[in-house]
């Protein structure tokens, strides 16, 4: 067998006050893959991402990142052991997340946003962290924006700073929460280019999105989620061309119809 998957989620379950947000979720993401997670709003996509960064504690199930258990581990003899905060924090840099609203730290410059976590979390010397930060921001086309504070950056630039901030931790896996939704529609192509370039470096990614077109043109595999369960998962082309699950078919039809309405109503004004 090959190496373990970069991300393995098994039987992940999360309930909020009796409402099941995640219902026995299984998902594997292998090295170098881009997996898009699609589904209607409220289906549990974002909750899954929050569980993968342990911002939300799942009630049941296991998460493995690059072969190492996160949050909870199965001991020999079938005993489940909860990890302490330090163990979880130590694994967190392995999972980079780019939030929907980016959550850059407004009191730091773009560069400092990228440098500070390296020095605080990884204990890197400041000049090494700075070198790494400059390198990443330059690669993401922000060489002339490094000294700006987030409020002086455009949405797309903020997103790239957030990506650099996560990449600087040398993660095994990158998570993206709705990377297109906080940006103007005309920037979708730009986001796509950035993520594709990232994929070119061999980065493993899990991208939550409700934009089917975006998912289809970016991802190797697509997972469809509804009511807290992953109902169908497979190569992107197969999912788009021949969805088996009726709810997925329904969802795709709805989204495509919506898209047509949007394009037809927008076109005359342009």
């Amino acid at each position: 067998m090959s190496a373990p998957p970069v991300l393995r989620v098994s039987n992940l379950t999360k309930r909020f006050h009796g409402v099941t947000a995640l219902d026995k979720v299984y998902l594997d993401v292998h090295a170098g893959q881009i997996v898009a997670l699609i589904g209607p709003s409220g289906c549990g996509k974002s909750t899954l991402l929050r569980c993968l960064t342990w911002l939300e504690q799942p009630d049941d199930g296991f998460i493995e990142v690059a072969g190492k258990p996160l949050g909870r581990e199965l001991m020999p003899g079938g005993v489940v052991r909860r990890q302490n905060r330090r163990q979880i924090d130590a694994l967190r840099p392995q999972v980079g997340i780019v939030f929907q609203q980016f959550h850059l730290w407004p009191h730091m410059t773009a560069l400092e946003n990228v440098v500070r976590p390296q020095t605080v979390v990884l204990g890197r010397p400041r000049d090494e962290a700075t070198r790494r930060g400059i390198e990443l921001l330059t690669r993401l086309g922000l060489a002339d924006r490094m000294d700006r504070h987030p409020h002086a950056l455009s949405g797309g630039q903020k997103q790239r700073v957030a990506i650099a901030r996560a990449l600087a931790m040398d993660p095994a896996l990158m998570l993206f929460d709705e990377p297109t939704s906080a940006l103007d529609p005309e920037l979708v192509g730009e986001v796509l280019a950035v993520l594709r370039a990232l994929a070119g470096t061999g980065m493993t990614m899990l991208v939550v999105t409700h934009e089917i077109g975006f998912a289809a043109s970016l991802a190797d595999r697509i997972a469809f989620m509804d009511h807290g369960r992953i109902l169908e998962e497979g190569p992107a082309r197969d999912i788009m061309a021949a969805p088996k699950e009726p709810r997925l078919r329904n969802f795709l039809d709805l989204v495509r119809a919506d898209h047509r309405i949007v394009t037809t109503t927008v076109t005359p004004t342009e």
């Binding site: 960064t53 342990w54 911002l55 905060r85 330090r86 924090d89 130590a90 967190r92 840099p93 999972v95 980079g96 997340i97 939030f99 609203q101 959550h103 850059l104 730290w105 976590p117 605080v120 979390v121 990884l122 901030r165 996560a166 931790m169």
Partner: peptide, 13 residues
């Protein structure tokens, strides 16, 4: 999100 993004990247509380 400010606190959470710091926690998610691995900073202690």
């Amino acid at each position: 999100g400010q606190f959470e993004s710091a926690r998610a990247i691995g900073m202690s509380p």
